[in-house]
Computed example of a mutant assay.
Amino acid sequence: MGRPGVDGLGDVVRVLGEWQHDTGPVQLHPGDVGWFWRFGAERTAQATRTWSRAGEVLAIGLLDGADLLRVAFAPEALRDEELARQVVEDASAPERGVLPEGRTYVEAPTGALVRELLPGHGWAVGEPWTPLRRDLGAPVPEAGVRVEAIGPEQAPEWAAVMRASFDGSTFTEERWQAMAAGTPYADARCLLARNEQGEAVAVVTVWSAGEGRPGLIEPMGVHRAHRGNGYGRAVTAAGARTLRDSGASSVLVCCQSANVGAVATYRSAGLERLPERRDLYRDAS
């Protein structure tokens, strides 16, 4: 297991992009790293883990928060037993510096051998998550509201809608600037939707993994004062159009199954539900 350092994050993002395929499982995406980058490059590097063999990176992990490890695998390594056992051992031993003591969580793609090995080390099945996908081979209808791609000048407005979309959010203009300075943002876009009065009502960020590969929505939010008017559907559709224009093959998102409102919004924008996936968790001291 290794840590790439700030200088190695570009390679991590590139490799993650190469692992994204419509025929493969939904897993950690360059956009997930890009969204985490709002905390700065140094903190992103500290949260990143890699597992390699003979100089080739086969798995990448992101410590998303203090207690959740999100892991992606090279397509050919999804069922690699040696690799899976190493990831399980590292995740299960707090002294190895991957996950801390106490209750911790692992998110791994469907079909990964690591999901089958974790229960043997004290891990249990956790809460369900719903992945959703929309193929972008066909045109995406117009959003029906005014949607614009923003730059630094609109960052304060975008950040304000973000804060008003999620309870407890501390998102700021400074975090937007940090995110926009990150390597993954080179091919990303932040969109802002306005109502007929010109008020900012919804936001979304879309992340590319390269032409012909799935793109990601992370995050999407609707201002709490403007919910129930279809703005979530509209800004999601605008995000899908933006990704299609950039050459993405599909658009992906994953949210907690318990968040039925978010699932319904994404479905209304043409995304189809994929089979649920569950985290695994472990109580360790």
Rank of each mutant, 00 (worst) to 15 (best):
P4N: 12
G5K: 08
G5E: 06
L9P: 00
G10L: 02
G10K: 03
V13W: 00
R14N: 11
L16Q: 01
P25C: 07
L28S: 03
G31Q: 05
D32T: 15
V33G: 09
G34H: 04
F36P: 00
W37R: 14
R38V: 09
G40H: 02
R43M: 13
Q46L: 15
T50V: 15
S52M: 10
E56H: 13
L58Q: 13
L58H: 13
L58V: 08
A59G: 12
G61A: 10
D64P: 05
D64L: 12
V71S: 04
D80W: 06
E82A: 15
E82S: 14
Q86C: 14
Q86W: 11
D90T: 12
P94Y: 01
R96I: 08
G97L: 10
P100E: 10
G102Q: 06
E107C: 13
R115A: 12
L117C: 04
L117I: 11
L117D: 08
P119M: 08
G122F: 00
W123I: 00
V125E: 15
G126T: 05
G126E: 06
G126S: 15
T130P: 03
L132G: 04
D135Y: 10
V140R: 01
A143K: 04
R146V: 10
E153D: 14
A155Y: 09
P156V: 06
E157S: 07
A159N: 00
M162C: 09
S165M: 06
D167L: 11
E174G: 13
W176C: 08
W176I: 04
Q177P: 04
M179T: 09
M179L: 10
G182F: 01
G182Y: 03
P184R: 01
D187L: 12
R189H: 10
R189Q: 12
A193G: 05
A193S: 08
A193L: 02
A193I: 01
A202Q: 05
V204C: 03
V206K: 00
W207V: 08
W207L: 03
W207R: 01
A209W: 03
G210K: 05
P214M: 08
I217N: 06
E218P: 06
G221L: 05
V222F: 01
R224L: 06
A225T: 13
G232L: 02
G232F: 00
R233E: 08
A237R: 15
T242R: 10
R244C: 08
G247C: 09
G247H: 09
A248K: 05
V251E: 00
L252R: 14
V253D: 02
C255E: 12
S257C: 07
A258K: 13
V260G: 13
G261P: 06
V263L: 12
T265S: 13
T265M: 14
T265K: 03
G270Q: 07
E272D: 15
R273Q: 15
L274D: 07
R277K: 14
D279G: 14
A284V: 15
